[in-house]
Design a binder for these strands. Structure first.
Lengths: 231, 231
DNA sequence: TGTTGTGAATCTCTTCACAGCT
DNA sequence: AGCTGTGAAGAGATTCACAACA
């Protein structure tokens, strides 16, 4: 078990590694991965400790092997089925993005009440009426729910899902869901994110504020400077 | 200036406070706000220190006043204009959600290349062709960009935006943007979020894991127990 | 030389615990 | 009695810095 932050970064590393692989690379050093992930080399190495993968001091990390190790660590061995509730613009965007990818984490059912949406496939995903939620979640062994319904309905949907044994929720509705049994809830709150951007964008010249460190003069690398401090 | 986490929570508190106000409440205690925000009372009080608002020991916080104070602290006095690039499903979802709200943070222009979308209003927001991006950003004094284009185009769009003086980006594309000048970037990475949920949902019985603490038996409150330890 | 892996130090965030107020 | 505001302690996350290795 690792911290929430580490898990998030591992997911990011994996995506970056897949990109590298697609470009034909075979090995990568911690500082390279760090730069792509906007982090530090030490951080990358620390995260690798969590997955238990070791690189070679000469060649760095073997990309293929590392992807496999991260997969071992992150993914459920037999994958996990996901359901999406609320096929509005946002729901469709997510269906489109995930359709076909990630066999270990596939959206196997969508739910909505609009008759024009139900009983057909949307971006490759079958869509059911919401009143069949319980039935289908059981049938398809859905363990994770993505909530993309309007704010007013989010709590009710969450209650239903957790009652049928769903173990995790990704909630896009601008509401803090109150769970009545142990369940992991991750909120994606666009308003909060936008207000954060507005706040930090406005800070006079905290140019070097956390995330803004993205600005790196190409020449110097953010390697932890194991270099001579007297230089 | 406050930490990223504090800013996020303040944005959340404000939304919760507005809900309370709509329900006719006038005052709130730190532990009430904390429960709604899934936090602790001490945390709430600490965050209040950042905005510099003081409550009364007897009545708690005056909701109206507190909302005003948070606004003072978070919002730019004259507001900030926002532009959205990429009017796909996701872009439309965001336009729909923000249309009309937040006068201090309004989306004043959208951009896309699809001829059927440009030169008309979508959810109340005028839509322009992407090749007019620079011109319109200048004209409308846009300071924040929301990137909802496909991954391949995200970096290019970000470069253009930062070149015209945009100071913050909210990026939905599954790409780590490399900034070439100081600019604040906040990524919303749905894949990462979903994988996080999958990971923690799967943990055997770390029922009490961080976010899962949502499960509160209604009776007992997560007040910091300034109570008698001998009881 | 330049890298990895990791104990130790540092930095940041959260919680505790209590004085002060009403 | 029960709350707020806050110094101080505690937890947690990140970074440093160096031994070990190729």
């Amino acid at each position: 078990v690792a911290s929430e932050k580490t898990i998030g970064r591992l997911s990011l590393y994996r995506r970056l590694l897949n990109n590298l692989l697609a470009e034909g690379e075979t090995h990568v050093f911690s500082h390279q991965l760090a730069r792509m992930a906007r982090g530090t080399a030490a951080q990358v190495r620390r995260d690798m400790m969590a997955v238990g993968y070791s690189g070679s001091p000469t060649r760095g990390y073997d990309i293929k092997e590392l992807i496999k190790s991260i997969g071992h660590f992150l993914d459920a061995p037999r994958g996990m089925n996901v359901g999406l509730i609320g096929v509005g613009n946002l729901g469709r965007a997510i269906l489109a993005y995930f359709s076909g990818r990630r066999p270990k984490l596939s959206i196997v059912a969508a739910f909505d009440n609009d008759p024009s949406k139900i009983n057909r496939k949307i971006h490759g995903c079958p869509c059911f009426p919401v009143n069949e939620l319980t039935k289908i979640v059981r049938e398809k062994d859905i363990k994770i729910g993505i909530i993309t319904v309007p704010a007013e309905e989010a709590q009710r949907v969450a209650d239903e899902l957790s009652a049928v044994g769903v173990r995790g929720l990704l909630n896009f509705a601008p509401v803090r869901i109150i769970a009545h049994r142990p369940i992991y809830v991750e909120d994606i709150d666009v308003t909060m994110a936008l207000e954060k951007v507005a706040y930090f964008a406005r800070q006079p010249h905290l140019d070097e504020v956390a995330e803004a460190l993205t600005h790196i003069p190409d020449s110097e690398m953010p390697v932890d400077t194991e270099s001579d401090p007297d230089a």
